[in-house]
Amino acid sequence: MINLDGILVVEGKDDMVALNRVVKANIFVLHGMTGANNKKIDYLKKLSQNTKIYLLTDPDAAGVKIRNKINSKIENVINLYASRKKATRNNNVGIENMSDSDLIEIFKNIRENKEKNDIKDVFSLKDLIDNNLVSSPDSKLRREILGDKLNISYSNAKTLLKKLNAINITKNDFNKALEYVEKYLDVKEKNACIFGKFYPVHKGHVNFIKNASKYCKNLYVFVCSETTRDEKLFMESSLRKKMSIKDRINCVKEELRGYKNIFVYEINEDGIKPYPNGWFDWAKRVNMYLDKYDIKVDYVFTNEIADIKNYKTYLNLEAKSFDLDRLEFNISATKIRNEFDKYIDFVPESVKRFQKG
């Protein structure tokens, strides 16, 4: 839970409910564009004389209008920004759609406005042109990635320049973000995959997959089954109901609903020596399924550092990893299977419903 010293202004009640899960703050609800009236803004202006005002609106056209209106009437509002991609679910854009981990990221690196006597432009249009943020075929994508990395959201060129000069962003911050943009673009148009038993899928899995989907064109999630192993996992577990491969795939799909670049498939591992052995035969099986599904992948995501070398040796795939220490969700499917009730908070709704049914 993040403690926020000040008033956090949001658009709606659903936003407040979502934010209350991760932030301890005095939350002021506007109730949309109609609620962002002069009376409320004047009230916030009076409060701003003695306390900080944080503003977090939806990353859509209405949110921009509300943000601009409030900023035009209240000085030194601390603007917080959400990624449009992270806030979109089933074509609906809203803060309430974001995962807890994505909401936390918004508050990790809050950038306050410059002091009044320190408002001199550090960035110029030349900085944007020189770094292909304007007048380039992929300028829009570059600005989107840069905005997410700097926690200032996507902007057109004019607004981006205004944000860069109004907020405490240094040239060093800018250059580091540009390095990230180049690395991101290097893999953005490539396909990636993730392998796992997902017995059961948990919030750590879901967070890992969603994060990975930002770094590729298409992400293929392979749910692996092996009859003898899966039966043994269930018999030795505290799970109430056995999960077939179909059940696991359905749960994974439900938790990733709305992510249009994520696709879920099965790989049957019957007859292959159990992990960590059998890599040669397993790789042959994987390639068989890739041909069957007519899928081409360029690299694999994993948080198992011991597997990185084997992916290269047997599948000729580069392995990329992040959150190796599982800092965001320090959980494993083994822990959940062994003590389901103890770790219920790490279990997504789809699995909870299945186990209760």
Rank of each mutant, 00 (worst) to 15 (best):
I2T: 12
L4S: 12
D5Q: 14
V9H: 03
M16I: 10
N20W: 02
K24Y: 14
N26F: 10
I27W: 07
V29C: 07
T34H: 15
A36M: 02
A36K: 01
N38M: 15
K39D: 12
K45V: 09
K52G: 03
K52E: 13
T57C: 11
A61K: 14
K65T: 13
V77S: 06
R84H: 09
K85H: 12
T88S: 10
T88K: 07
R89H: 14
N92E: 14
N92C: 09
I95P: 05
I104L: 13
I110E: 08
I119W: 01
F123R: 04
D127M: 03
I129L: 15
D130K: 08
N131S: 05
N132W: 03
N132R: 10
S136Q: 07
S139Y: 02
L146V: 10
S153C: 06
S155R: 14
T159I: 15
L160S: 03
L160N: 02
L164E: 00
I169A: 06
N175P: 08
E179S: 14
K183A: 05
L185G: 02
K190I: 06
K190V: 06
A192C: 08
P200E: 08
K203E: 03
S213W: 00
K214Q: 09
K214G: 01
K217S: 13
N218M: 11
Y220Q: 04
E226D: 11
T227S: 14
F234L: 05
E236V: 01
K241E: 10
I245Y: 02
R248L: 00
N250M: 11
V252M: 01
V252E: 00
E254P: 02
E254V: 03
F280T: 12
D291G: 13
D291K: 15
I295C: 13
Y299K: 09
Y299S: 04
V300Q: 07
V300P: 06
V300K: 08
N303A: 06
E304I: 06
I308N: 01
K309V: 13
N310W: 04
Y311S: 02
Y314D: 04
L315V: 05
N316A: 12
N330Y: 07
T334L: 03
K335T: 04
K342P: 00
E349A: 12
V351I: 14
R353Q: 14
Q355A: 07
